[in-house]
C-alpha cells in the first residue's frame, strides 16, 4: 500500500490500475473554437428619422436542427442601446455577461451620486462607446486565435445624440451604414432595406412606422428563404425616449404562393 501523501485520496493503483493523467498535460498545441456550434441566424437593423429598428428571430440552431426556439438575441444596454447577436450562442452569452458587468458598474456609480442622477442619459456610455469596447474585445480575441464567433449589430445614439448603427464581426472588422444585416440577411434583407434607405439622407426621412414595416417585411422574406430561421422573432426600436423591445412577435400575413413555382428540390417528382 502506498502511504505517501501524494497518493492520499486517490484511487488505488493496485485496484484501479495506474491513473491516466495525460489529459492534464498542456504541452501540446491548444485547440480553440474552429466553428460555431449552436448558432443564431441573421440580425437586421435599419436607421430612421429619430432612431433605429432592429430585429432577429428567436431560434438557436444546432447545425440544421432547430434546437432552441425561444432564444432572445436582441439585448439592451441601459435602455439606450440595442445589441443584436448573430453566430455562436455561447459566445453571445459570454459577451452579454461582460456587458452586464459594465452596466452594473455604471449603475452603482450613479447610485452613489444622487445629484448627478438628475442628468441621467448624459453620463452613461453611449452606443458608440459600447461599440468601440466590443470592437476591441472581438479583435483582441481573434489576435489570440480564439475568436468570439459572432457578428454583432449595435444600435443607439452617439455622443452627438444622432442615431447610431454599427456592426462588428469575429475578426474585429467594423463598419456602419444606414441599414445593416448579418448572415443570410446580408444577401436577402439588405437589398430590400437599401431600396428604402440607400443613404443616410434617405434614412433620415423614414418614419418609425415605415422603418418597422420594412424590417418586418425583411423578416418575412428571411423566413421564406433562410432554412435556419423561425417565424417567432424579436423586434426593438430605440429612440431618445428609450427602447421598445418586443420579444415574442409572430410573422404575419405569410404567403407561400411563390413556393408553387419552385421545382427541383427535395423529394418532388414532378
Amino acid at each position: 500500500m502506498d502511504h505517501r501523501p501524494q497518493a492520499w485520496g486517490r484511487p488505488r493503483d493496485d485496484v484501479y490500475g495506474a491513473y491516466d493523467g495525460s489529459y492534464l498535460n498542456h504541452g501540446g498545441p491548444k485547440n480553440a473554437t474552429q466553428s460555431p456550434v449552436v448558432t443564431g441566424t441573421s440580425v437586421i437593423a435599419l436607421k430612421f428619422k429619430d432612431g433605429v429598428v432592429m430585429a432577429a428571430d428567436n431560434l438557436a440552431s444546432y447545425g440544421s436542427l432547430a434546437r432552441f426556439t425561444d432564444v432572445k438575441r436582441l439585448h439592451t444596454f441601459h435602455n439606450t442601446t440595442i445589441l443584436g447577436y448573430g453566430g455562436d450562442v455561447s459566445d453571445m452569452q459570454f459577451l452579454s455577461r461582460l456587458i452586464l458587468q459594465i452596466e452594473l458598474h455604471q449603475d452603482y456609480e450613479l447610485e452613489q451620486l444622487p445629484d448627478i442622477k438628475a442628468q441621467r442619459g448624459q453620463e452613461v456610455m453611449q452606443a458608440n462607446n459600447l461599440f468601440t469596447f466590443l470592437k476591441k474585445q472581438m479583435y483582441h480575441c481573434r489576435n489570440h486565435f480564439d475568436p468570439l464567433w459572432n457578428q454583432i449589430l449595435i444600435a443607439g445614439f452617439d455622443d452627438e445624440r444622432k442615431p447610431f448603427l454599427s456592426s462588428v464581426d469575429l475578426r474585429g472588422t467594423s463598419f456602419s451604414a444606414p441599414s445593416l444585416a448579418t448572415g443570410f440577411g446580408a444577401a436577402l434583407a439588405q437589398p430590400i432595406m437599401r431600396k428604402y434607405a440607400d443613404t443616410e439622407e434617405q434614412a433620415a426621412k423614414l418614419t418609425r412606422e415605415e422603418a418597422v414595416e420594412i424590417v418586418k417585411e425583411c423578416m418575412k422574406v428571411l423566413f421564406y428563404r433562410d432554412a435556419r430561421s423561425l417565424d417567432r422573432y424579436s423586434i426593438a426600436v430605440v429612440t431618445k425616449d428609450g427602447i421598445d423591445l418586443k420579444e415574442n412577435e409572430q410573422l404575419e400575413k405569410q404567403s407561400w404562393a411563390f413556393a408553387e413555382r419552385i421545382k427541383g428540390y427535395g423529394t418532388q417528382t414532378v
Partner: peptide, 8 residues
C-alpha cells in the same frame, strides 16, 4: 482607446 471617449 477602449471606449472612444474622454475618461469620466
Amino acid at each position: 482607446l477602449s471606449y472612444g471617449r474622454n475618461m469620466p
